[in-house]
């Protein structure tokens, strides 16, 4: 009973938030609605008993990804209204067809695959975090390490791409040096 109430409540909230994200013209509205939607999505993970996944969802998405987007938006002009392309009827038709096909496939998928057996069943008497740790560090150790390397590469790439001229620290420079560097920047921009 409570599960049903929670499910419908969070389903409606998530759908509304993500619809706002997709449909709004203000970039800040989209960002905040997306952050709220991410937190509501983590509620489903808690309902489903995947506690660790829910915590990771909150930490990674609303902690890291949203903060990154917020920093990124400081570089862009977010007060300007976002212009959208005029939706041609062809795109809308193709989109609706695709969505309908997806719906049918997802409805029929559990019926087709009713004889699924679990490869790594949930361990009796262990909490979700414990069983996740057991499976992650035995069966999925190599993908786990590869994901770590991938995150490291992504971090280096992000720093290299976004952090140009990071070798100069404004706090350690004298006033004249800062003024000189600003003049030099103006010349580059002009």
């Amino acid at each position: 009973m409570f599960e049903a109430i929670a499910f419908y409540l969070f389903a409606i909230l998530t759908i509304v938030m993500f619809t706002i994200t997709v449909m709004t013209k203000q970039a800040l509205f989209a960002l905040t609605a997306l952050a709220a939607g991410m937190i509501f999505v983590s509620a489903f993970f808690f309902i489903l008993g995947a506690d660790f996944l829910g915590v990771v969802q909150i930490i990674v998405y609303t902690g890291a990804v949203m903060a990154l987007y917020a920093f990124g938006m400081m570089f862009f002009d977010t007060t300007r209204e976002v212009k959208e392309r005029n939706g041609s009827s062809l795109i809308v038709m193709g989109l609706s067809t695709l969505s309908a096909v997806f719906t049918v496939v997802i409805f029929s998928a559990p019926v087709v695959s009713s004889k699924i057996e679990s490869i790594y069943p949930t361990i009796e008497g262990a909490t979700n975090s414990q069983s996740v740790g057991m499976v992650l560090f035995t069966k999925y150790l190599v993908p786990f390490e590869l994901a770590a390397v991938m995150l490291l590469v992504a971090m280096v790439a992000g720093i290299v791409l976004a952090g140009k001229k990071m070798d100069r620290s404004l706090t350690l420079m004298a006033e004249e040096e800062i003024l000189l560097s600003q003049e030099a920047n103006k010349k580059v921009i002009l």
Partner: peptide
């Protein structure tokens, strides 16, 4: 989730 995080880092850069 890991893929999404690295995608955001590189994409935003």
């Amino acid at each position: 989730i890991a893929v999404a995080a690295s995608e955001v880092a590189v994409g935003l850069g």
